[in-house]
Nucleic acid binder design. Structure first.
Lengths: 113, 113
DNA sequence: CTTACTCATCAACGTTTCTTGATTGACGCG
DNA sequence: CGCGTCAATCAAGAAACGTTGATGAGTAAG
């Protein structure tokens, strides 16, 4: 039985995807800008001083993780935060806390059998 | 003005470190096991069916992110969750939500100046 | 003292992720 | 139509990451 088959919480991969999308400075900066409301790519580009294709790449990661959505209007793409995805992250952090009554000095007294 | 000097929330790097540590299946599995209480490396090794050096590597990432602590006892190292670090993650998820009154159809009417 | 065991660290390797510059498609405007 | 702009995509290279097997430090036990 491998780690993949055993431990995998129903949504382990989902968690990995979410946390990975959040594990980059550029992407966190993007999300921070989006806290004020939606932005088009060129606005982000200007404020973050980042190449266009670089932003496109990071926006795609965020979009594929479900953390942002985009809306096209004319030539522009507007991106905005998906609050539900952040709520998922919130919930994950809560669920990962130790279980009640998990204090154990030595489980069963010995370590490895 | 670069993204690094401007946007960087006081703890952007801290956030990146935390999220990065959580963005791996093996590490999430380890944390899941630790929810029941502390474990020594050999226990994790057995249950996760992972090479010892692999676990050591991942435990180091988790430790350096402050998500787990270790305690030596004789030959064994016992690892356990640091609840405060998960609370940080929790708080980050909350802080990243859009600001109140952030609904904006078009900021200033036009997109790029 | 010697052996066995737990664990951290290292170097080497393959893989993934990120960056850059170029290309392409879509749209609006003169 | 022909041109400029916005943005997605691609290919190539660089950097970071994760895996593996080997080595070494520390401890317990014969």
């Amino acid at each position: 039985m491998t780690a993949a088959t055993r431990t995998v919480a129903p949504d382990l991969h989902r968690a990995v995807t979410l946390f990975h999308a959040l594990s980059d400075e550029t992407r966190l900066s993007i999300l921070d800008m989006l806290r004020d409301g939606e932005r088009c790519v060129c606005e982000l580009q200007e404020e973050l001083d980042a190449a266009q294709s670089r932003l496109s790449f990071h926006l795609r990661v965020l979009r594929e993780a479900g953390l942002v959505t985009d809306r096209r209007e004319g030539r522009w793409s507007y991106y905005s935060i998906v609050p539900e995805a952040l709520a998922e992250v919130h919930d994950l952090a809560v669920e990962m806390q130790p279980k009640k009554g998990a204090l154990r000095v030595l489980r069963g007294g010995v370590c490895c059998s």
